[in-house]
């Protein structure tokens, strides 16, 4: 074989290996989706069934037994609500910092980032007691507030980076023409920053949606979100694998798709802008 053939062969082996690894990583998810279309008996069959007559009964049953839509609604309200609240606070701040940086801007951003490092369990007791005293335990409101606060630092940092990328010359030119601050924001900055803002919001929704610690600890039956609903399946009372799979598939599908769509922002957001 010539060198070129050897290189080609090696490349082919690498591609096959890549597919095998990808299938292994994806397998548990594939299996979960498959199980959600089985009956409970098929789900625990030994040997496991790969081919069977699919049923949709799990998806209708989980609604009757667990009130799935309530938990889904709680998840939607808390993750969208938390994201909106955080964006409302972050957009003006990040805007001001990016276009009028001061001596302390960098230190402020670094300090904000450091609040993200506070381990949740370190402040569990005060937050639990405060929300109990304020009557917020097991309400969507407390999760909205907490989700907004825990994502605010990341949102600030990404938005700051986005606003920084808008060329200052455009703004200076418009200021020379006498554009007001309001028009500057609505007509020049927002159209340019819109994509960045939308994908930051998407990332924040993904993070809120999967958040389990606060949801499990601060909510019960009224304001529980999907991670808490799934956690309730861990009780040893029964082996409802098919129903568990159906709930899990429904709970994860939207966010996995979201995740695929905002991969790039995810990298920036999760590494606090340090890897682009």
């Amino acid at each position: 074989m010539t060198d070129k053939q050897i290189a080609q062969f090696k490349n082919r082996v690498a591609v096959v290996a890549a597919w095998i690894v990808a299938c292994l990583f994806f397998f548990p998810i594939f299996w979960m989706v498959l199980t959600s279309f089985k009956t409970e008996l098929q789900a625990i069959a030994v040997p496991p069934k790969l081919f069977f007559e699919p049923t949709l009964e799990n998806f209708t049953l989980i609604q009757d037994r667990t009130d799935y839509t309530k938990f889904a609604w709680n998840s939607i309200v808390t993750s969208v609500g938390g994201t909106l609240l955080a964006m409302l606070i972050a957009i003006p701040s990040a805007y001001a910092m990016a276009f009028n940086p001061g001596r302390w801007t960098k230190d402020i951003l670094m300090w904000m980032l450091s609040t993200k490092m506070l381990p949740a369990v370190g402040v569990l007791m005060p937050i639990y007691i405060l929300s109990q005293k304020l009557g917020l335990l097991d309400t969507k409101g407390v999760l909205v507030i907490i989700y907004a606060l825990i994502n605010l630092p990341i949102i600030m940092l990404i938005l700051f980076n986005y606003f920084r990328e808008i060329p200052k010359e455009i703004l200076e030119a418009s200021r020379m023409d006498g554009t007001s601050t309001y028009n500057e924001i609505t007509q020049i900055v927002m159209p340019l920053a819109w994509g960045g803002i939308a994908s930051t919001a998407l990332l924040s929704i993904v993070l809120c949606w999967n958040e389990a610690f606060w949801s499990i600890n601060l909510t019960a039956s009224d304001a529980g979100t999907l991670p808490a609903l799934v956690a309730s399946f861990s009780s040893p009372e029964g082996l409802f694998w098919a129903k568990l799979s159906a709930v899990s598939t429904l709970a994860c599908a939207p966010i996995v798709v979201f995740g695929w769509l905002c991969q790039k922002q995810l990298v920036q957001g999760l590494t606090f802008g340090a890897v682009k």
């Binding site: 994806f26 389990a212 991670p227 995740g259």
Partner: peptide, 9 residues
Amino acid sequence: SPFFIMPTV
């Protein structure tokens, strides 16, 4: 994909 699956799931 596994990274986007919620931890409890």
